[in-house]
Design a protein around this nucleic acid. Structure first.
Lengths: 236, 236
DNA sequence: GCAAAAGTGTTAATCTTACACCCATGC
DNA sequence: GCATGGGTGTAAGATTAACACTTTTGC
């Protein structure tokens, strides 16, 4: 089935930037590369696109192999195609980023790949152009989260307002006024207050909220200003 | 230099969505495919990534071959990788979109490809998944133009406020109040009023403006709300 | 002199921000 | 009883949106 003669064919890989939140801060899931070159160095989880699967399917498959997760938020980020980016052989990398709730899935991580969660701020040096991919994923997430309710992909079903605020503050590495923050978030109407409280992180306890799933799915495209002064934080 | 054994290699193509504005409306530059399958059907300008060039370079090269243009706004859009998208042979397509000022460059179009500008709203059926690519490019442009001063890539050096308004109204297929529109745009401080007027499109004539290049380059990332109620128009 | 398009200000409503105190509880 | 973190309201300022008339000039 090779019919465009005279053209070269290239390896096409998928690399996944897997970001998580554990209630404390952002983490990234990395694997220790098991083969040369750069053996033992840390790397994004990746793999080659197979003959019968789409690139999107390859990304899902690779994410599933590492974490056992299906139906995780997964979005194509960017394609990296410099000729020398993989020294072994020219490879085009399509980068995807995934958002997962670490607490929910921690135990499902495959042992096979020596995967480890790193605090995003203490990420080790990565192979090839993977650091650049992570940087781009961070920017994309900041951009998107300023406008769309995407960060809920990182939270458990039930969450508290202080947790939510920590999630936003961690992403933008800043602090927000909790009165204004709560008012803005609640005004979206996306949340349903629960009767029970999270008593783990304070004496008084903070009420749990759940997403109103119907509104969430219908309002994802809603263009909301979740953070003040977005221009300070965003890179287009 | 084939060292990742056992993996298949794929054709990697670049397809360019070339959008222009001619003072009247948005246009898209298409070529008539010169070979089977789908010969004579309309198509985006594309080509294969060559051994020594990056994917970005391939996009620039392909754009240059068709239009003779260098230093045009060109941004990677998305990678399309379904197995059957090109019936001839499996090909991964990295789509880019370009913005150009038609009036400036009209005459440089290469004859070689039977290229033609179509009003974006009267675009013919395209081969493969190219229509989907165009749809995505439109959404991306709408999204980006609502927040960043990107549409100036479509205008000549000197432009008038009514032209600018037509540019925005055309993109969102709506109308804006000209008092509010002018005030909002001018409040960005990105424009320098000229002494001369454009007398072609009205009797009274409209003053020309130029971009303040310094501010434009420094403020591109500025996060401005160029259109009211963006949530009505945007798809994330 | 009139048709056609350019240009210009004000007001009301809404949204955003800054800011400080009380509440509930575990220890 | 006190330390810790959760929860709430208001007022001033800024921004946005709605709205109509005058100006210029080519014909």
């Amino acid at each position: 089935m090779l019919k465009y003669s005279g053209q070269i064919r290239l390896l096409v890989a998928v690399d996944c930037i897997i970001l998580g939140f554990d209630g404390e801060g952002y983490k990234i899931l990395l694997i220790q590369r098991g083969f040369a070159p750069e053996k033992k160095k840390w790397s994004l989880m990746g793999g080659f696109v197979q003959p019968q699967e789409s690139v999107d399917e390859a990304a899902s498959r690779i994410l599933g192999e590492l974490t056992g997760l299906k139906s995780v938020y997964l979005e194509q980020l960017h394609t990296f195609g410099a000729p020398g980016r993989d020294p072994v052989e020219r490879t085009i990398a399509v980068a995807y980023f995934a958002l997962i709730d670490i607490q929910k899935y921690e135990k499902q991580l495959s042992k096979e790949y020596h995967a480890e969660w790193f605090p995003l701020k203490e990420m080790p040096e990565l192979i090839f152009d993977h650091s650049q991919m992570v940087e781009m994923a961070k920017n994309r997430l900041r951009y998107k989260a300023a406008l769309h309710p995407i960060l809920f992909e990182l939270l458990p079903e039930k969450f508290t307002l202080p947790q939510l605020q920590a999630l936003y503050e961690g992403l933008y590495d800043t602090t927000f006024d909790k009165r204004n923050f709560n008012r803005k978030l609640l005004s979206t109407g996306l949340f349903v207050k629960q009767k029970d409280k999270d008593k783990d992180s304070s004496k008084k306890g903070a009420f749990f909220f759940k997403l109103d799933q119907g509104k969430y799915l219908n309002n994802f495209q809603a263009f909301l200003k979740f953070i003040p002064n977005p221009e300070k934080f965003l890179v287009p």
